[in-house]
Design a protein around this nucleic acid. Sequence first.
DNA 1: GTTGGCATAAACACAT
DNA 2: CATGTGTTTATGCCAA
Length: 386
Amino acid sequence: ISHHSVVNGQARSPPPDSGTSHALYGHGVCKWPGCESICEDFSQFLKHLNSEHALDDRSTAQCRVQMQVVQQLEIQPPRMAHLLYLHPLSPSTQYGPAPLNLVSSVTMSKNLLSVSPPNLPQTPTTPTAPVTPLSQAPPVLSPASLPGMGAVRRRHSDKYAMAMSSEIAPNYEFYKNADVRPPFTYATLIRQAIMEAGDMQLTLNEIYSWFTRTFAYFRRNAATWKNAVRHNLSLHKCFVRVENVKGAVWTVDEAEYQKRRSQKITGLSLLGSPGLMYVSLPLQAALAESSLPLLGSPGLMSGSSTGLLQTAPEDLNGALDHLDTNGHSSPCYSPQMHKPAVHVKEEPLNLDDDECPMSLVTTANHSPELEEDRELEEGNLSEDVE
DNA sequence: GTTGGCATAAACACAT
DNA sequence: CATGTGTTTATGCCAA
């Protein structure tokens, strides 16, 4: 099913033109790099795609990295190019999920630019497919998002975001649709959510909403991550609860947050590394976030969204680890990766909480309407997305 | 081997 | 009573 969905997703969402077109299919041939298998018809192609190019964690990660590199090369001065020139990712190096940050941007960027909500990240040219499907989840479609509750959170655009337009920004669409755990810690994500609020404050429920709205990954196992969110809000001094008319809202004590961050941060002497690829994920992420122009190339996709996460590099670290430190890539799917850590357990079955399993595909259509969403929904995805 | 950070689980208090 | 919200403690994993 799953893969199926993925494929479908790809196939489907693509260009509206014909129902049978696909970026990787043309002239009866699979255009997957290095493949060129002949497929008599589109359906055959889909099968082929599905069987031969199923994106596993590793390939997905690799694709992302490659894309990132390519993009970098495109925008970099020639001189850096050689650095980036991709060395194949060494296994040891792993690109884990993290790469998402950086990487996906490429992909995303394309999507973002042209995409509208309903699409998925799949990209036309590349196997970007970063998104791998979790295999499980039937595609769900959902029309666009709910009108949301009006509470539109304005695109913050706070200085930070702008300034750091981190890499993720460009990946907004990606995370929104792909069931990939974002490489950031809960604290970082919570802060981001709050920062994006026009008034820099959010109720717990709004924070929940932001999570589900922004990351497909958090549309599942709500009990787990919601608990984590509350836990983080209470635990970190940087999050301050303020009584408000509407009840209580949470705000961020930037000083406290930065303080904490600064402690961690220390040696990321970025750039010197031998090529991004070799950089450990965390580092990559860090780089991305650090808004190195190099990586993020926010410019390209700037339009799209807010800078998600203006976080700092360190923020990533923690998260990254969880992501997959071991090199396994799989950010996406393999929830069970070794690290129990954050991966919310997949429990597809348990959608109970609220979540519906969304696979990419699903996601693709993006339909978050998960229960929560309905409640929360602020709706305007547009903010971020478009 | 120790330590720190983070995620996750869970118990508990309170309020609605 | 059921839920949601907060707080706190415990535990496990991983990287430094």
